[in-house]
Amino acid sequence: MVHGRRLLVYAFLIISAVITLFPIWWIFATSLETAARAYSFPGALIPQGILSNYQAAWRLAPWLRFLLNSLGIGIATTVLALGTSLLAAYGIVYLPGRFSKVVLGLILATMMIPFYSILVPDYLIVRDLGWLNTYAAQIVPFAANGFAVFMLVQFMRQLPKELRDAARIDGIGDWGYLWQIVVPNLGPALATVSIYLFLLSWNAFLWPLIVTTGPSVQPIQVGLADFLSTANGTDWTVLSAAAAITTLPVLILYIIAQRQIVESVSQTGIKG
């Protein structure tokens, strides 16, 4: 009886997983199919394996450029935001002063501001800085992050206080203490925050859509969206090949770092 129920649970989970993964399979299946066969179902379930759609998609847009743009923007944003957040959290936890509570409050309050509500003024600020269609517009506004500060404050408060006294006896100053003791001791917490920051940047869509106008600085999602809206009359097979090109790097990264990504997301609980 118990055995039978368990079997039922497995069957249900497997069927659900197949349904969940079907659309992702369908991107690749369609992309490897001739246009004529793509419209036949269930024939197209097992693709023929032709690569001409990829050749066509590759010719029509600079995918490698888009990909490198996304990577560069993501890495730069992550490094900068991690740096400013580390400094801020350190200042609050280890060097508290008269205003640090107020400042922490202000920084945390920015978590409550939906980016959609400040789209217009931010656009005007970026324009006045002469940053339209640049990397800077996509990096600098996100080079600090209230939620990252919040998490790092939590993690830093968990570090043992004795470390601090020992360091002081050894003559290590505030700056040295941050880089020599605090940062190495944060370990996996830094990875969690970094993955959060990187995913936030990687998934950005509306902002780069507004502030970029050409493929030279566009991230891959905006590049794909532009490709789709200008590719009128292009076959679904070629569109699927384009979608597959943007999906493949993420898929590979996910297979490699699946555990860390899942851990980071379940701890931070937020997608950009």
Partner: peptide, 9 residues
């Protein structure tokens, strides 16, 4: 997965 890519499919 990139939302634009999965939206496409």
């Amino acid at each position: 997965m990139p939302v634009v890519a999965t939206s496409t499919v």
